[in-house]
Write a protein that binds this DNA or RNA. Structure first.
Length: 534
RNA sequence: GGGCCCGUAGCUCAGCAAGGUAGAGCGACGGCCUCUUAAGCCGUGGGUCGAGGGUUCGAAUCCCUCCGGGCCCGCCA
């Protein structure tokens, strides 16, 4: 009855899903020569952490399929034929004139670094994929339409547009496609894609007739130019509505798996039926996951319009720590913010300890799962040796007090003193960089001028004298007590004042060694400034 | 209107896939260098796992109902 648990692949959710996927394909009698997974890349705004989640989760399934002994491939499909619906936060208002245009037709707002707006945005995501090590086959929607890769499916859908419209209505109650074709032509006159209404299909010529009559997009009316035209649906001068486009993609590109966020759940539901009933093709296996939400509060980056991008994460944390966030759980809404990065950095260290058997986990299933999760964080290419492990907060604390100009040296010395470097220092440099970035960006000392009483000012003056005469940490330490005693001041209070001056905090590391570390001249300089500011 | 997720220690949350002794961080409390400075370390306390029912030898975990909170979609993508 109680049989030992069978561990599939690396023991993770991905391995289990991959097994189900393969079994499903076997049941359907399809070829197993190549199992493709896919995700759509939004190209109309800055890629968010969640955008990367779409990619890496579908890629992880491809990896898991390969672990089962089959060939697999992940396709990153850029939705760059979609129109611009809203000017992303952080970009100039002038872009409003491009609302409704396909993002692949809009010039790159950042200059000439990319061919188009859409190209710029999707390349930001591709960059992140490269940093993380995701292998993908990139496809641009605009190019796919131009190359005619979806033509057979487009025609089939146009010929059955009435049925498609009914399916959409039945599934989600949307009436629009009962009267319009699920195809958006790019207006030959004004160049916009969301203002056109395709109302008639001419099967012999494979053309749709349309009027540029305008549409409401994100609560805002985009007035059409009134142009009436016709367009060949195989010419790549328009696109299918999302309500039917996925189905076309799935069949034409032979996609077997697509995990998606719940925001597009309705579209997937409709497309599943379109795929089966109109294209006669069994849709891919799906898994639905929750969204990643921005945590309010902390300012991240002005230039990025406060979007929590992968690039922001990489400033403070490793690619693998981001993978951990994205892979560890599928269900449950995740509110994420930069403040979570230390947690994931530390958790990854724990997983690494488990992977390298420095920490024993009794339950074999549990152990397999955690080791597997670690391996997937490295996209199944884990390092041969563990890295150095230092609690992120400790690094931040050290980075905060590290004397300017020799931060790294100081941090290394301290860590060595604390015994953290006994097993080597693999990856220490990056960790120090992350912590320094953290402190620079979030803990820029808000050193308010310290108000000194006459007595305290006198104490500071005397201390400066003592520091000048002193030689080394012990002298500096003693000086504080000497001065405090000479004025009948409580050393506790005096230390507090000194830390407020030097660090902006009421506490700090042992005074003498700290003064030595930052350089006694620097310390004296700070103290003199405090006197002047009085 | 339709759908999804969450509810676990004072606080923030992990654990739930594939049931097997209730976990972490922060806070609180106690201790650990000494010329009163420990951003560190060690330890302690703290939970009817939202409520009720079901399945099971066994449920935080699976199923059902209810209560409370949140999110997504609604003629765009």
């Amino acid at each position: 009855m109680v049989s030992p648990p069978e561990i599939i692949g690396h023991g993770t959710w991905y391995d289990k899903a991959a097994k189900e996927l393969i079994e499903r394909e076997l049941r359907l009698g399809r070829s197993l020569d190549l199992i493709r997974t896919e995700s759509g890349l939004g190209a109309s705004g800055f890629p968010h952490i969640g955008s990367l989640g779409d990619c890496i989760r579908n890629y992880a399934i491809a990896l898991a399929v390969e672990e089962q002994g089959y060939k697999a491939e992940y396709i990153a499909f850029s939705d760059d034929k979609d129109g611009l619906r809203k000017v992303p936060a952080g970009l100039p208002k002038e872009l409003e004139k491009w609302l409704g245009y396909p993002v692949s037709d809009i010039p790159d707002p950042f200059g000439r670094c990319h061919e188009s707006f859409g190209d710029h945005m999707s390349s930001l995501l591709l960059e992140a994929l490269d940093v993380i090590g995701v292998e993908y086959r990139f496809m641009s929607g605009a190019r796919v339409y131009r190359q005619g890769l979806l033509n057979r499916e487009i025609i089939e859908i146009m010929e059955n547009a009435e049925r498609a419209g009914r399916i959409i209505y039945e599934e989600i109650g949307q009436t629009k496609f009962l009267n319009s074709l699920p195809y958006f032509p790019v207006c030959e006159n004004c160049g916009r894609i969301y203002t056109t209404n395709a109302y008639k299909y001419l099967p012999d010529e494979r053309k749709v007739l349309y009027r540029c009559e305008g549409m409401e997009v994100k609560g805002r009316w985009l007035e059409g130019c009134g142009y009436e035209g016709e367009v060949d649906v195989t010419a790549g001068e328009g696109k299918l509505s999302w309500k039917v486009e996925f189905a076309a993609r799935w069949k034409a590109l032979d996609i077997r798996f697509e995990a998606y966020g719940k925001d597009i759940a309705d579209s997937v539901k409709v497309n599943d039926r379109i795929c089966r009933e109109i294209l006669g093709h069994e849709p891919p296996m799906h898994v639905q996951y929750e969204m990643f939400l921005d945590k309010g509060g902390r300012k991240i980056s002005k230039s990025a319009g406060n979007v929590f991008t992968p690039q922001v994460w990489f400033r403070y944390g490793s690619p693998q720590s981001l993978n951990l966030l994205l892979l560890k759980r599928f269900i449950g809404t995740r509110s994420v913010g930069v403040e979570d990065i230390p947690v994931y950095m530390d958790e990854l260290d724990r997983l690494e300890d488990i992977y390298f058997n420095r920490v024993n986990i009794e339950d074999p299933k549990e152990r397999a799962k955690l080791r597997g999760l670690y391996e997937y964080c490295w996209l199944l290419k884990p390092p041969k040796e563990p890295s150095v492990h230092i609690p992120y907060r400790l690094l931040v604390n050290l980075a905060r007090v590290a004397p300017e100009g020799r931060e790294e040296e100081y941090i290394r010395e301290k860590l060595s003193e604390y015994g953290y470097l006994k097993r080597g220092a693999r990856g220490l440099e990056e960790r120090i960089r992350y912590a320094l970035n953290w402190v620079r960006d979030f803990e820029e000392p808000v050193r308010k001028p310290v108000e000194l009483s006459a007595e305290e000012a006198e104490a500071v003056r005397r201390l400066i004298g003592e520091l000048r005469r002193g030689r080394g940490a012990d002298d500096y330490q003693s000086a504080v007590f000497k001065v405090a005693r000479s004025l009948g001041l409580s050393p506790r209070r005096f230390f507090r004042t000194l830390y407020l001056i030097l660090l902006g905090e009421p506490q700090g590391p042992r005074f003498g060694p700290y003064v030595e570390a930052i350089g006694v001249e620097n310390a004296i300089g700070e103290l003199e400034r405090a006197l002047e500011g009085d």
